[in-house]
Design a binder for these strands. Structure first.
Lengths: 245, 245
DNA sequence: ATGACAAAAAATGAATGCAAAATGGTCTCT
DNA sequence: AGAGACCATTTTGCATTCATTTTTTGTCAT
């Protein structure tokens, strides 16, 4: 009598798209990956209560591995665990977002500095390629394409830093602000968009010259500007039509 | 009898001195704090197997909360969990240490930059005070005092950054390399010691002028030098190692 | 009708139980 | 005697169960 749970659909789908390097072959590891994605994707409203039983039914497992995964997600800062009151999706205050953006700025700044020490001409060429691609999206006002290529550029810089620890930390913080970061780029401010393009050109220039310290400054400032745009976008979240003022 | 852990009666004292702000009132939270300290303090040899039941007996709890704490510690990078083979204290390769030092460098570099934006004259005065105190330890060849004051200075800079997220991340990474970081300062190289003092003066100078970008560079380089000293000290580890008293 | 109190229901925290996998030792076969 | 196979013990992973705490609900009094 092991199967007390109705087999509705496929409880555990193999997360083939994941990094897979980690030793997440066990059930709790699988659950962890799926729950993290589930939360990051925004399937649970901010601050909503999430009964364990419900998640168990959804995932087709018992509470033990689920609770283990919840503890890890809490330590990652994605959710918060109130004693005897269950888990809630962590609600980020404006201050939290500012702090997170600043930490991201520090990490990218570091990534740029380290990248200048070891990046190859081929990697720079690849980033240049992405840059031109992004420029195309910019010209075509393709916000979605721009956003994706932009992320790939930043990830390429992090990858070029050749530091797995940094890469992991970066991915962790990026997950926390994913939704906001996305909407930040969606701010209709064309001026900010053009400014970001110029900043990216400066980034590329410093990268070509392997000017680590300089690139560090530029990247920090770039993220600071993105932070400002994100915060501004959050405080006045009405933008369906091009506002007149 | 495969006891890898010294069996004292009540080995782990209650961590009353911990940053009790956290909502770790529950049992698993308490266990987490105690286990983390226990591991960070180096009570378990590198790479040693740690049977769950033994830890349970030691802590006087059942396996469920212990396993939850282990999962969290693994996500923090302190231990690693091999599927069906239990938890091992994570053994840091030289490359791991290099990466960790670089990430620490990035975080301190960020902290310095942010600190310049908001630090008060009083805070700077306090750091100056610590600096002179440290100079005294340096003159008296008091390695232990020097080490402690040095840490307090760096922590003060991080605190001055006014970013709790950064502070938490910094504490996390600091925990991972605590032992090595300590021994790094124990390197008998007097030359490096004098150099570090000069670097600290430059840090203080940039801080007084609120020169964020400059301070960022100096702090990064300072940590880079510390990293070099630590690695060097590890590759030729023949000094009278600080054994347990 | 509203508020307070109390009991029921549900959810969480921790312990125990059970199956699968790994470890260790012994035995057999060459 | 040595290498490999086999079995017993230990250990891990997960499910289930038990005990508290919280939340809801129903009733009563004002």
């Amino acid at each position: 009598m092991k199967s007390t749970i109705p087999d509705t659909g496929v409880p555990i789908a193999p997360t083939a798209a994941n990094g897979g390097d980690r030793q997440e072959a066990s059930l709790h590891g699988e659950i962890l990956l799926r729950l993290r994605d589930y939360v990051v994707e925004g399937n649970i409203p901010d601050g909503a209560r999430v009964p364990e039983r419900q998640l168990c039914a959804m995932l087709g497992i018992s509470r033990t591995p689920l609770r283990e995964a919840l503890k890890v997600l809490a330590s990652e800062g994605l959710i918060e665990l109130l004693p005897n009151r269950g888990a809630r999706v962590r609600q980020l205050s404006q201050r939290d977002l500012e702090e997170l953006f600043d930490v991201m700025a520090g990490l990218e700044s570091l990534a740029g500095r380290l990248a200048c020490e070891a990046i190859t001409d081929e990697e720079i060429a690849a980033i240049e390629q992405l840059h031109y691609e992004m420029y195309g999206h910019y010209l075509h006002r393709d916000m979605h394409g721009y956003f994706q290529t932009n992320q790939r550029i930043h990830e390429s810089i992090v990858a070029a830093a050749r530091n797995e620890t940094l890469k992991t930390a970066y991915a962790n913080f990026a997950g926390r602000i994913r939704r906001v970061r996305y909407s930040a780029n969606f701010a209709r401010k064309r001026q900010r968009w053009a400014e970001a393009m110029r900043e990216h050109e400066a980034i590329l220039d410093a990268l070509r010259r392997r000017a680590g310290s300089e690139l560090s400054d530029i990247l920090f400032q770039h993220l600071r500007n993105k932070r400002a745009a994100a915060i501004e976008h959050l405080t006045e979240p009405h933008e369906d039509a091009p506002a007149s003022p």
